[in-house]
Design a protein around this nucleic acid. Structure first.
Lengths: 101, 101
DNA sequence: GATTTGGTTCCAAAAAGTTGGAACCATGCC
DNA sequence: GGCATGGTTCCAACTTTTTGGAACCAAATC
């Protein structure tokens, strides 16, 4: 069954309030900070929170993905997490910069 | 009696995640947009949502106030709501601009 | 001081979000 | 195929937020 792709909102479907909500949780915001430095695998994320159960981490990531903040795509045996930087910058100029500063 | 002042966080106590959470609700974000144009009374706020019960509106305002987004001070018989613009701009440069744009 | 006006707080119910173990699924590798 | 690895989804318990009526409070005005 081939692909195993998760749903991502198109750029123009991304809602500001959803993005703000996704980033309003300290654990999620921290993940975004980590990912902002470059693509990471699931295991590499949440280095700050090593004891975090994987299901919990996956849920946090789901909120970020569904809000349009992070892209989650298959990568070998694992997954590749990337910040949707350019798209977010285009849709909400300056937002990410001011939050991640 | 005497004073009837509500609690407001000091500028350096304002947490980014609290601000983001406060603004992540469409009704609250709309209130902030209205207030960004200048001080308003409670009654003048939420013009978009006329049927909103006053207790509900007061709760929304409380979240905004406790997050440090809005100042709520006595003004005659009513109350004066103002956006804490300069303070927020100092603490989180560019944030409000990018959100309210 | 009684009344009206404008708003906050109390309280309880409903809705939404969080958390994590267990089951499941996909891929890579032997 | 079989197995280990990396991660998602299911489900249920728990916590937090939201919501709004009713009670309350403070200031202004008569």
């Amino acid at each position: 069954m081939a692909s195993y792709d998760l749903e991502h909102p198109a750029i123009d479907e991304i809602e500001l309030t959803d993005v703000l909500f996704a980033l309003s949780d300290p654990a999620r915001l921290e993940i975004v900070r980590e990912v902002s430095a470059g693509p990471l695998s699931m295991a590499e994320c949440g280095a700050t929170n090593p004891a975090l159960p994987k299901s919990t981490k996956s849920h946090l990531m789901k909120v970020l993905r569904e809000a349009g903040v992070v892209r989650n795509e298959p990568d070998g045996r694992g997954r590749r997490l990337t910040l949707r930087r350019e798209e977010l910058d285009e849709r909400f100029p300056g937002l990410l910069d001011s939050i991640l500063r």
